[in-house]
Simulated assay, not measured.
Amino acid sequence: MTTQAHIPAPPPARHKREADKLAKRLRHQVGKAIADFGMIEDGDKVMVCLSGGKDSYTLLDVLLQLQKKAPVRFSITAVNLDQKQPGFPEHVLPEYLRSIGVDFHILEQDTYSVVSRVIPEGKTMCSLCSRLRRGALYTHAAQHGFTKIALGHHRDDMVNTFFLNLFFHAKLSGMPPKLLSDDGKHVVIRPLAYVREDDIAAYAEARGFPIIPCNLCGSQENLQRKQVSRMLAQWEKEAPGRIETMARALGDIRPSQLADPKLFDFLALGRHSDAPLPDAHAWLAGAPAEPEPVAMALHPVRNHDGLDILKS
């Protein structure tokens, strides 16, 4: 009888070294994103949106570490929106936040009932849920004077969103590291913009965050975003490093090599005259162009004296 060999677990010291290296890498990547995009400045009141997932836990944890050594002074408040989902463990986040001594606030708004009532069974809930959640958080930020709203989206989210918009919405747009809300009242920042999701998962496990799964829409397997995620995962499996390459491409845009006349003046490119160009209607109608004046050909003819004369 063959018995399976026992493989000893790595020594704890090795785990600690790896965890320290990972924490250092995340601090560097988050600090670089903050500096590259001017996410946080002196005197900012930063509202960190905490969902209970690995991404927002990691965001809060790294920002608290950077706050201690930052060249500017800023405050951090963790804000969670309790959407009244059945079975949501309301005690988990308050207990964790008190244990680390961070300022926090729990908003209570029954968006679950609204989404469940409005969205037909089997349809995607994410869009409406996201709008309601965003509205509640924006309102809270305005009422309490927060100058920045920090979200836990990471590098993979940004690449995923780019392809989601490309494949399903026919536009080249994504999830920017920093943006101004449509009403111009809020600045949203994504300090995890340079961080890999795999690193966040490893960091969350090493730190032992009390993860709360989202049961509202987690069972909807046919979401467009999940389709894109599966595609990217397959690409990464076939060619490791491809997602990183695509993420870098999002920061290296060449408008002259795309096809948007609003971003690049294609009309002026290579023009040799200031004459107005015909509009699209003329091209589509196939209107003939004005005929070019034809020059008369002159032919030399000899007279009786043998001299050349010009004859048309």
Results as ranks from 00 to 15, higher is better:
Gln4Leu: 12
Ile7Trp: 12
Pro8Gln: 13
Pro12Leu: 13
Pro12Gln: 15
Ala13Phe: 09
Ala13Met: 06
Ala13Leu: 10
Lys16Gln: 14
Leu26Val: 11
Arg27Thr: 10
Gln29Val: 02
Ile34Met: 14
Ile34Val: 15
Asp36Met: 09
Gly52Leu: 12
Asp61Met: 08
Leu64Gln: 12
Gln67Lys: 14
Lys68Glu: 14
Lys69Pro: 00
Pro71Ile: 14
Val72Gln: 14
Val72Tyr: 15
Phe74Ala: 06
Thr77Asn: 07
Val79Phe: 02
Leu81Ala: 01
Gln83Pro: 00
Glu90His: 11
Leu93Phe: 01
Arg98Trp: 00
Val102Gly: 00
Phe104Leu: 04
His105Met: 04
Ile106Arg: 05
Gln109Val: 06
Thr111Phe: 10
Thr111His: 12
Tyr112Trp: 13
Tyr112Leu: 08
Val118Thr: 13
Lys123Phe: 08
Ser127Pro: 04
Tyr138Thr: 10
Thr139Pro: 00
Gln143Glu: 15
Phe146Leu: 02
Thr147Arg: 06
Gly152Glu: 05
Asp156Leu: 03
His169Ala: 11
Lys171Val: 05
Leu172Arg: 04
Asp183Arg: 01
His186Gln: 14
Val187Phe: 01
Val187Leu: 06
Pro191Trp: 07
Glu197Asn: 10
Ala204Gln: 05
Ala204Leu: 09
Ile211Gln: 14
Cys214Tyr: 10
Leu216Gly: 03
Leu216Gln: 07
Leu223Asp: 00
Gln224Glu: 01
Lys226His: 09
Trp235Leu: 14
Met246Asn: 01
Ile253Asp: 10
Arg254Ser: 07
Pro255Leu: 01
Pro255Tyr: 01
Ser256Asn: 03
Leu258Ile: 04
Lys262Asp: 07
Phe264Arg: 04
Ser273Ile: 03
Ser273Asn: 09
Ala275Gly: 03
Trp283His: 12
Leu284Pro: 03
Ala289Met: 01
Pro291Asp: 11
Ala295Ile: 08
Pro300Trp: 06
Pro300Arg: 02
Val301Asp: 02
Asn303Trp: 11
His304Gly: 15
Asp305Gly: 10
Leu307Phe: 09
